[in-house]
Design a protein around this nucleic acid. Structure first.
Lengths: 204, 204
DNA sequence: TTCGTTTTGGATCGAGTGATCTAAAATGCA
DNA sequence: TGCATTTTAGATCACTCGATCCAAAACGAA
């Protein structure tokens, strides 16, 4: 047939993820990308299309390997209330261990959206819908087994968790302080437990 | 002495704010800026320094005119609990009325930080500290007058509000849906009211 | 009016941009 | 061993980038 491709598609895509993650879309040049991916620019265009198409593929791969993988690791393996805690524990650890303060590529992408790239805009919105759905499933299951307060609608609590997640990732980029992030998380998770929260005084 | 400047400094700076707000730092060229500001690039460099310096000045002006002005409009004029509600009402209205989905320039800046611009990074971090302090003042005052639940530390509640604010602004850019944003806000504000939240059932 | 100073518009700088092209290299099939 | 096909590397495209320079223009002070 023909000459086979010399590079591993997934591996070079991971390198592209690192580039976009560290510098954002606009500040990353095709030359940066090709060099980091270890391929020539002609190969890049041949394999991935143009820069925007590569960005979308990198974004998709990132989502698969971070959010989707995390959900797969947690959901069903843990009781719902603990699944939520475990989810945020992972986020907290990632945020605090992020020496370069790259944050979350998806959140970065959400805010760097160019008006002329509806495709990646939709991609981001879709993932945010999935995140909300994951939280909602957890909250509904938790309300059913009694581990989560049922006095507020599951929809609202799920949206709170989504907002807190996004806020956490923004805050972590600008002020990666453990006390700050844990302080933000504490009342958010306490809300799930509902009004029976007298744990410190000793009365209950 | 010499030829006076023909343009109004504050006015052209506002135009620069609009540019950076709509397109972000990297995607905005000096030519875009000069054209929108209605001045020549030489005048731009002469009056504001280089592009990064202009960005920082635009960011400062934006913070003054949005966040600082909002706090001045609200704090002291309203009781603390209502100040928080009024604050988020304004944010909600701004987010839902944002046809271009530009979001908040400060949040955008927080996530577009380049590793090589510590000055604007510090600027963003400082404003986030101020935001946290504003929320903390409100919460402490509210706990004192009984309008805010005192069973959780004011520091934590303030951090929750900061996180929710940031999360809201991220979410609004990707999914500007009223039900979503209000749903996120509802449990967050309910947390301030504490455990006596049986309002719908009618028990008391 | 004349001089000194500053701003203005526009041309221009070298460097870097995304993207393409060409030709050499590398394969599988005949 | 050829041949068709694809990938590779690197040169190159026109263009834009941030920044600077220069001469003309516009003032205030003398």
């Amino acid at each position: 047939m023909a000459r086979p491709r010399e590079f591993d598609n997934a591996a070079v895509l991971d390198a592209a993820v690192q580039c976009f993650w560290a510098r954002g879309y606009e500040a990353t040049s095709v030359r940066d990308l090709a060099a980091s991916m270890g391929i020539a620019s002609a190969s890049l265009y041949n394999a991935f299309g143009d820069k925007r198409a590569l960005y979308r593929q990198a974004l998709s791969r990132y989502v698969e390997q971070s959010f989707a993988a995390r959900v797969g690791r947690i959901e069903g393996k843990l009781p719902p209330r603990q699944a939520i805690t475990a989810f945020f524990d992972e986020i907290l650890a990632r945020s605090l261990g992020d020496r370069q303060q790259k944050g979350c590529l998806l959140v970065n992408a959400a805010l760097e959206q160019s008006p002329s790239d509806p495709e990646s805009r939709d991609l981001v919105a879709d993932v945010l819908v999935e995140m909300e759905a994951f939280f909602r499933r957890c909250v509904i299951a938790g309300q059913r087994d009694g581990s989560i307060d049922a006095s507020q609608p599951a929809e609202d609590l799920a949206r709170l968790l989504l907002g807190v997640l996004l806020g956490l990732r923004v805050l972590a980029r600008a002020r990666p302080e453990r006390a700050l992030l844990e302080g933000l998380l504490r009342p958010a998770l306490a809300t799930l437990d509902g009004p029976q929260r007298a744990e410190k005084g000793g009365r209950g």
